[in-house]
Nucleic acid binder design. Structure first.
Lengths: 197, 197
DNA sequence: TGACCATTTTTACGCTGTAAGACAAGCTGT
DNA sequence: ACAGCTTGTCTTACAGCGTAAAAATGGTCA
């Protein structure tokens, strides 16, 4: 195992969160994962919040819109890519949803994305508004997509459908399946992009 | 102060969360708020998660769509009402975003909302899809709206605009102001509802 | 009085983030 | 070679957390 670094700490944190869930991501566990005592991490990172901010950074910096051709098209592609990345790291989604983009690297990534839109002719304000509308929507949708899994694993009773006939029918008709989510995401992002021309 | 009950525990929890933030909502503090030891709460609530689920229940049960006339209209009104309620309890928004609707009361409220749509002629699956699309969007948007406040209060440097020219310009042009959020919410929900006809 | 009961408190355990300081190893300048 | 500084790690400690288990309290009824 090579030398420690902020990057390696974040790598381990992301792996640990993906494997065991964010709840299990403690400084002691993270240290153990790296073969080191908890306090050692504080040499590379000011505190735990910085680790969480780092995880958000990892996700945010890993996707970017690539403008070319009709805006609704590449914006749609960006939305899909962002959603895919979020689904790849389900444990981190609540962090992305909850914490503002905070680290310099993450802010720089956002700036780069906005700059690309500005280069396409948008005003800076419009660029951020567009980016914001899409990311905000993707995060909201993905959060809703994730919840069920966590809920089911908590305890058996999937849902007391006895006195919830509408819900029971909807579930039987495919509500909450992967296909349902995909389809709804597709429809909603299309509507959103079409409406914000 | 009258007798304790689950309802009064949740009242106190909501008040405490609104006043001091969810981070400060601990069983001991909540007990103190009610003039009682922490462990006493466990007589009214199985564990802390149940308290958090209860907070979600409070929010979810406090708004409902009221179908009458063109769907896009009352759905828009529902979206606005939901957003207003979320903004009234900013500290709870991350919970609503993150935790599935879990308590019987909350599930019943959702069922009631869906039943109202079904009574309007929608298939149960469509009813939930529509509800889901709107609530999901509102939650996502409101989360993004809230983040900045929390971020600013953490420490002074609002943002290093030096090397983030696009962001700086956008901020100067009004990005992130209340008016900006209101306007974007309005535009996006309209687009969404128009596109899911 | 004594037994039952609902409610509350006490005590305790293992876990958390992290402040403060000790410690070891390597590099530098003399 | 020696001293001293830097870099990295570990030790110890503290206050707080959620909550299991058991004990204490107080009221109501037989």
């Amino acid at each position: 195992m090579g030398r420690l670094s902020r990057a390696r700490v974040l790598d381990a944190a992301l792996a640990l969160a993906d494997r065991d869930g964010i709840a299990k991501l403690s400084m002691r566990r993270l240290g153990a994962e790296l073969g080191v005592e908890a306090m050692t991490l504080y040499y590379y990172v000011p505190n735990k919040d910085a680790v969480l901010d780092g995880l958000v950074e990892r996700i945010v910096a890993s996707v970017a819109p690539r403008p070319s051709g009709p805006r609704a098209v590449w914006m749609g592609e960006f939305a899909h890519a962002f959603r895919a990345e979020l689904l790849r790291h389900p444990a981190v989604v609540p962090l992305v949803a909850t914490r503002p983009v905070a680290t310099p690297e993450a802010l720089a990534a956002v700036e780069r994305a906005a700059a690309a839109l500005v280069a396409e002719g948008l005003a800076p304000l419009r660029a951020f508004q567009l980016l914001n509308a899409v990311t905000t929507f993707v995060i909201g949708h993905t959060l809703a997509e994730l919840d069920p899994e966590g809920a089911r694993s908590r305890h058996e009773p999937p849902v007391a459908t006895a006195e919830l006939p509408c819900l029971a029918q909807a579930l039987a008709a495919g509500l909450g399946t992967r296909a349902d989510h995909d389809e709804r995401f597709e429809a909603a992002i299309k509507a959103l992009l079409a409406g914000i021309e």
